[in-house]
Amino acid sequence: MTVEAGSVGERSMLERSPMARLPDRALRWILTALSFGILLLLVYFFGKLSLESVDVFQHQGILSFVFSNDWNPSKSQFGGLALLFGSVATALIALVIGVPIAVATAVFIVELCPSRLRSPLTILVELLAAVPSVVYGLWGVFFLIPRLRPFEQWAADTFSFLPWVGGPVAGPSYFIAGLILAIMIIPVVSAISREVISTVPTDHKEAALALGATRWEMIRTAILPYSRSGISGAAMLGLGRALGETIAVTLVIGNAAVIGHQIFDQGYSLAAVIANEFGEASAVPLYSSALFACGLLLFIVTLVVNGLARYIVSLGDIERRVERARRSERKSAAAPGGAA
């Protein structure tokens, strides 16, 4: 093992006896074991879920489970496309509504607002994350759905020329679920955007202002390009959060296993189907296996989205570094070429 601090050489008088070094080693091994326990846990977790899903995959094939649109447990048909569609649709609605607001809030807090408002505003935005998802669902059912309905119907009638808009408005819908998800992802997207925006070098901002840019032009030319990848990463993390959200969505999406024709239609999502049908399913092995497969699908989708998010965020620094390297390379390559 490594020689611990306190020793000066290989066989110093100060070196501890093996017995005295025992607690150190023990601690090290315990901590290492706990850390790698996480690895084991996740491997076991993935294996267990896959194993439980095998039944339904054998019953109708993985592709048919993911891509066919016939969720009909009473006839043992488990085509999850409508569920997957619902998860993706609501999460996308959440992004479209939530990300611009979250990023604007972040820009406002870092750049525009008076410094004495900065920390109260930060806390207030973060309090949105402290509201439990079941409370969002409760609020959605009894406040949002009845109150928004007239506006939704008006929007559906007025903008019926747009794709996916028009027709009768159902109470619970993709739109309501997306709206609630948007509120739920604002704190996380805003927090990461804020962090990214506050790393924009003051030099860049001052350079823009010195060239005569207005405040907005400075934000557009200095802040947003610099933090673009960080903000996209934040949006992806928000997407991952929105895809996995269960209880709030279950309460407001309507729980109808069909692919809606427009955003004010009822639908279903992967997470919602698990929460909602779990009770009835537990007695039927194939049915519960289908729900486990939904969980597995959800896990894989969020894994990919989150992985992509982190990759995009990390791209931010690397991108800039690579770009700089390429530019200097081109310069040095151009010099002898021009001489010849």
């Binding site: 996480i38 879920l49 996995g244 959800l298 982190r310």
Partner: peptide, 16 residues
């Protein structure tokens, strides 16, 4: 892995 765990939906942990 810790990042992965952060992203796992709570409903999936429940199933597990």
């Amino acid at each position: 892995l810790i990042d992965v765990m952060t992203g796992v939906p709570s409903v999936v942990f429940g199933l597990f």
